[in-house]
Design a protein around this nucleic acid. Structure first.
Lengths: 185, 185
DNA sequence: CACAATTTAGTTGTGCACAACTAAATGGCG
DNA sequence: CGCCATTTAGTTGTGCACAACTAAATTGTG
C-alpha cells in the first residue's frame, strides 16, 4: 500500500462543455475546458481497446483446447468458409498484411493444420489450404462462438447492433486515414 | 487477380464432420444456425478487433507528431491526470501488467518524458512522474481527442453510448473469465 | 524476533501488428 | 524481344500483450 501523498491535483469535474466542439483549441494550457477530453476514462478508443483485450483473454482460454491463438482461429475460420485461399485473400479477409501472416501461417503449417504451396498458375501466389487435421478441427470449433456469446452476456440483437456500429466506426476511421495521410504524388 | 478457378465450394453444409461424442444439446433450434456462427463476418470480436486496429492507424498518424505510440500516450494521460503514479497504479488504470509496462516506461524515460524512482517509503515500488518535458507535451496533446472524435464521424452522444456498451461488455467478459478459468485443485 | 506468504518490478519467451524493405514472377508496352 | 512497373510473399526491426518466472522488500503470524 503505497501511501501515496496524493498530490492534490485540480479536481477533475466532468464539466458540461462537452458539446463545445467548436471551441478553439488554441491557447496553451487550457487546463479547464479541454481537460475532460484528456481524461483516460473518456476515451472511446480506450474502452474499445479494453474490450478487445478482454475478448482476447476469453478466447485464449477457450481456444487453448484447440491449440489455436485468436488470429490463428480467424485464419482457420476463413479457410473453413472458403476451402482454400491465397495468402493475399486471407489478408484481405482479416485485414492483415504478409508481415503478420507469413510467420503466423508458418506456425499453422508447423502445427499440421494447413499446407502452403505455390500456385502453379502464378508462381508469386501461395495458396493456403487446410489439411485433413485442419478440417477436422472445425468440428471442435463449432461450439466456440456460442461460448463466446454466452460470456458476453449480450443477446443476439444487441450483438448485431454493436457489430453494425463498430463496422461503421471502422469504415469512418479508414476513410479518415485515407483523407489525412495520402501521398498520391 | 490470380484468376482463381473458383472451386465452387461456397455453399458448405458439412454436418457429417461433427461426429464427436459431446453433442451440443441446447438451442440447436434451426438448421444451419451453428454454421452461421462460424462465419467470419458474424463474429463480434472480429469487428471489435478491426475497429481497435483502425483506431490504431489513426492514432499512429496523429501521435506521430508527439513522438508517442498509443499505449505510451495512455500512460501520459494517466500521469497528466494524476501527477505521479507507482507502476502498479499505472497498470491498474490501463489494465496492463509489468511485463508490458516495464519496457514501455523505459522507452518513455529514454525519450525524456518521465522519470522513474524507487519509493523511499516502500522500496518495492517505483514511482513514475512526468518530467518537465513530459508535462509540456500535454499542451500539444490537448487537441488529439478532438481530432480522433472528428475521424470517427460520430457525435458525442453516440460515442458515449458506444463507450457504455463496450465497458459493460468488458465487465461481462472479465467476470466470465474469473468464473471459468481458475480451477487449481 | 524468525520466517513464510504476499506484494511489487523486472526479465524472458512467444506471438501479433505494422512499417519498411527485398526478391521473384508477372504483365504491359514500345 | 527487352525493359520496367506492378503484384505477391517473405524478411527485418520495433513495439505491444501476456504468461511464467525471478528477485527483493514488506507484512503477517507464531
Amino acid at each position: 500500500m503505497t501511501t501515496t501523498p496524493a498530490p492534490a491535483e485540480r479536481d477533475r469535474e466532468p464539466r458540461s462543455d462537452t458539446a463545445d466542439s467548436t471551441h478553439s483549441p488554441d491557447s496553451a494550457d487550457s487546463a479547464g475546458s479541454t481537460d475532460d477530453f484528456l481524461r483516460l476514462d473518456q476515451q472511446i478508443c480506450f474502452s474499445l481497446n479494453a474490450a478487445s483485450r478482454a475478448f482476447g483473454g476469453v478466447y485464449r482460454v477457450i481456444l487453448k483446447e484447440l491449440g489455436l491463438t485468436y488470429p490463428q482461429y480467424l485464419v482457420m475460420l476463413a479457410l473453413w468458409e472458403h476451402g482454400e485461399l491465397p495468402v493475399k485473400k486471407v489478408g484481405e479477409h482479416l485485414r492483415l498484411d504478409s508481415g503478420t501472416l507469413s510467420p503466423l501461417l508458418k506456425r499453422l503449417e508447423a502445427a499440421g493444420l494447413v499446407r502452403r504451396e505455390r500456385s502453379a498458375a502464378d508462381e508469386r501466389s501461395v495458396v493456403v489450404r487446410p489439411t485433413e487435421e485442419g478440417t477436422a478441427l472445425r468440428g471442435r470449433a463449432v461450439r466456440v462462438p456460442r461460448r463466446i456469446v454466452a460470456a458476453t452476456g449480450f443477446d443476439l440483437t444487441e450483438i448485431l447492433e454493436l457489430r453494425a456500429r463498430l463496422d461503421r466506426l471502422t469504415s469512418a476511421l479508414d476513410t479518415a486515414l485515407l483523407e489525412d495521410a495520402p501521398d498520391p504524388a
